[in-house]
């Protein structure tokens, strides 16, 4: 516990330093002045054994920025700097990747990050690939997950429908307390009450999990940060839009989830 507190403090200091000196290398990617529409990039980080932040993309035909790119690229950039400062994850800090679910390269990166699942739709190839990815040992983090999307769409309903194509037998389990190892893989998060909600995403932040063989004692395949938007805190942690304490908690939950994905 003492160690955990010390790290949080250290993280806060580092966060302040990051906020002051952030450079957005990702933003220099071609077309990055707008939210990207493509599903995969030739500029993705070539696999070399180091950890890479992989954001999942999906088809989007709307006129504005693609929802899968919300908080991109600053969200992951800030997050990676915190992750590598606070832990010794050997990661690419100045670059990240964007992949679609049918990309064979995805299998070289055991943790994937998906946002705005209310707009998410997968092709059959995507479904097949995602199932194989998760069953073999991949881990999917779903974030930026309001209870309604665009004020109309039942976000959970759409997400559950897509995931039911991947795991027709799958049963979602809500983590009602912080006893699961995913809340302790790096920081000791002992209460879910500390998890902040950036704006009106629903009644309270909830954590839904899918387990191997639907057995909560086995490996978690996917964590859905329902009614959460952790990356919102990551993205704007340099602007002072949210309390430093809330941003810290969002980082802690995120770091735990990524380290859980790497190690479990």
């Amino acid at each position: 516990m003492q160690r955990g507190r010390m790290l949080v403090v250290a993280g806060t200091v580092i966060l302040a330093a990051l906020v002051a000196g952030t450079t957005t290398t990702l933003a220099q990617r071609p077309g990055s002045n707008r939210a990207p529409q493509q599903q995969s990039y030739s500029g993705n980080v070539r696999y070399d054994g180091k950890f890479v932040f992989v954001r999942m993309s999906y088809a989007w035909s709307g006129g504005r920025g693609a929802p899968w790119a919300h908080d991109w690229p600053v969200g992951e950039e800030h997050f990676l700097k915190i992750l590598t400062s606070i832990s010794n994850v050997d990661a690419h800090v100045d670059a990240s990747s964007i992949m679609h679910f049918s990309d064979p390269e995805l299998f070289k990166f055991p943790v994937a990050y998906l946002v705005e699942p209310g707009y998410w739709y997968m092709s059959q190839d995507d479904v097949t690939n995602l199932r194989a990815y998760l069953l073999k040992g991949g881990f999917l983090i779903v974030d930026d997950f309001p209870y309604r999307t665009g004020g109309r769409i039942d976000t959970w309903g759409n997400f559950e429908e897509q995931m039911s194509r991947v795991f027709p037998e799958g049963k979602w389990v809500e983590l009602t307390d912080a006893s699961h190892p995913i809340f302790h893989s790096f920081f000791e998060v002992n209460s879910l009450d500390i998890v902040p909600m950036a704006y009106n995403l629903g009644d309270k932040p909830r954590f839904m999990a899918l387990f191997e063989d639907n057995d909560p004692k086995k490996r978690m395949l996917c964590i859905a940060n329902y009614q959460n938007d952790l990356s919102e805190f990551w993205e704007f942690s340099e602007e002072g839009r949210y309390l430093v304490q809330d941003s810290n908690e969002a980082y802690k939950v995120g770091v735990n989830q990524f380290i859980y994905g790497i190690t479990h």
């Binding site: 010794n88 994850v89 040992g137 790497i262 190690t263 479990h264």
Partner: peptide, 26 residues
């Protein structure tokens, strides 16, 4: 924190006669 131990333990955990205790520096 790298993925190799995670997959090694997935393999050895399926073997009832092996107990791989992981001490992973984070």
């Amino acid at each position: 924190p790298r993925p190799e131990p995670k997959f090694v333990r997935q393999a050895t955990d399926k073997d009832d006669n092996l107990q791989v205790v992981l001490l992973q520096r984070t």
